[in-house]
Amino acid sequence: MIMKITLFIPCFVDSFYPQTGRAMVRIFEKLGHTLDYKPQLTCCGQPPFNAGYWDESRKVAVKVLDALGDAERVVIASGSCGAMLKVFYNELFKDTLREADARALGEKTFEFSDFLVNELGVTDIGAKFPHAVTWHDGCHGLRELGIKTEPRALLSNVEGLELREMGEAATCCGFGGLFSAKFPSISVAMGQVKTKSAVETDTKYIVSNDGSCLMHIQGVLDRERRGMKCLHLAEVLNQGW
């Protein structure tokens, strides 16, 4: 069945990692689906939400509700922004006029790997990536959305790829949005726990389904001159075809 997929490209993907979005476009086109994108949308409203300023968050979030109201399926390249739309919008708009809209949006919104595996039933894109990689579970994808097996299923079908799990795969990388700026010393220490565990796998790549985590992990890796590179799952699935 051909679906009309509306991509939600979060701010950090748009500006720092547009290749992740381009990879998603190429993958969904390969699978024969129709794509849509709302260029007026950039932010899901999570920063003010997490800071406790829910009125300000709603100002951003209503634009998302408005723009995506008629979308068929919404797919996001980040577990964290996915959790914002799927889980936290329900809390944000609880007992407001937009409560039903928030619930409806949550039900048709999916994180990228969840959508591929559970909605499209696709676990093999036909990608090739002849490298050993390790996986980072983004917290919101893992614990708010329950995504753990889906990305691993997708990676297991990438030709030549060897997944070496790290001990701290499910431990927070320390990003946490504004937390990383409010408590930089803790955030960096958490990042160091993550990079140490990743380095122990003796791989060159850390792959994840959350670009915001990867931004933080890459920042710590580069400062430590670890010589490892972070890749979004979509970038890996975009290789070799």
Partner: peptide, 13 residues
């Protein structure tokens, strides 16, 4: 404590 990523010349938009 960390490096900051570079904004790409061509954004997704």
């Amino acid at each position: 404590g960390r490096e900051f990523p570079k904004v790409k010349r061509e954004t997704f938009k």
